[in-house]
């Protein structure tokens, strides 16, 4: 059977693009791009479904597959690390050629088998879809496939249960209420812990990087404002170091200024930088 010219146009426009997108699955490095390729194929399929007298499936394809399933994929990609790129270097010897060969072989066999699949004019679905496609589907579903439908229900329960078993972590301790948190903070005050949240690193300092301690209201640097990890690794910058850097910077500027302006002006600039210098800063280390 031959389809109408419009359908042919649609097919020949979409099909190459879909194959191209699908091939993207084989070659793109980033998983997100692969997902987008698949989505393109799926939407393309939805359009082809509609063209093939299956409007209901077309809609379901967009809603369920592209809308839900692929979104789920994207969610997981986010969890796993959306930026992670896949190296395309093959590590298993021969696997690439074997894979390509088998893929090509499979395509060849299926194409030969399927390629001869029209000997008589196809029937078309005009009759079957007389009561509208979804209704016709519903009738077949509820008349002939009740068992399948019910079992599919079980399958969905299984899926939910599976997701729960594998990913849901039960809360093991008591839930922390705001009151409990507040009480604990007040109690910890006695041990010298701060009542308020820790200051963010870099606050009030001249440099607001993560590794620069914040300055307290008294101008002292607060070491605990730097993330613990950086401190353990010894990657935080002490206030002294910051100040020293500041000073060199200022000196550079001053030197530059000296060239153009008077010596008194540079003297003023030096005193302006000095309040950051504290007596505690040096001996803190």
């Amino acid at each position: 059977m031959t389809a109408s010219g419009g359908e042919a146009f649609l097919f020949w426009t979409l099909a190459p693009l879909m194959v191209l997108a699908a091939s993207g699955l084989l070659v793109v490095r980033k998983a997100v791009h692969a997902a987008i390729c698949v989505m393109f194929v799926m939407v393309g399929l939805a359009i082809l479904y509609v063209a093939q007298e299956a409007p209901f499936l077309g809609v379901v394809q967009v809603v369920v597959y592209t809308g839900a399933v692929m979104m789920l994929f994207l969610f997981v990609l986010m969890l796993v690390g959306v930026d992670s790129a896949d190296s395309l270097t093959e590590t298993i010897r021969g696997q690439r050629w074997i894979g390509l060969l088998l893929g090509a072989g499979l395509a060849a066999v299926l194409l030969t088998v399927i390629g001869r699949a029209t000997f008589r004019p196809a029937v078309g679905l005009a009759d079957a879809n007389a009561v509208s496609n979804p209704v016709a589907l519903a009738r077949v579903l509820f008349e002939h496939y009740v068992v399948a439908m019910q079992v599919v229900g079980v399958l969905l329960v299984t899926a939910a249960l599976a997701a729960l078993v594998l990913t849901h972590r039960r809360r093991l301790g008591p839930r922390l209420t705001q009151r409990a948190v507040a009480t604990a903070r007040v109690a910890a005050l006695a041990q010298g812990r701060p009542l308020t949240p820790l200051p963010a690193p870099g606050v009030y300092a001249q440099n607001n990087a993560m590794d620069t301690p914040a300055l307290g209201p008294d101008g002292r640097p607060l070491e605990h404002s730097v993330p613990r990890v950086l401190r353990i690794r010894g990657q935080e910058r002490s206030a002294t170091a910051v100040l020293a850097a500041e000073e060199t910077l200022v000196e550079h500027r001053a030197a530059a200024a000296e060239l153009s302006e008077a010596a008194e002006l540079s003297e003023t600039a030096r005193t302006a930088g000095s309040p950051a210098r504290t007596p505690g800063g040096e001996e803190h280390r």
Partner: peptide
Amino acid sequence: LFPATDNLIVLFIALEVLSLPLYVLCA
């Protein structure tokens, strides 16, 4: 259900019904 059907698609669904829980149980 797996052997108890005349319908290939029910066969496929039964295959998944028996497989999915096993995948999880394995972990």
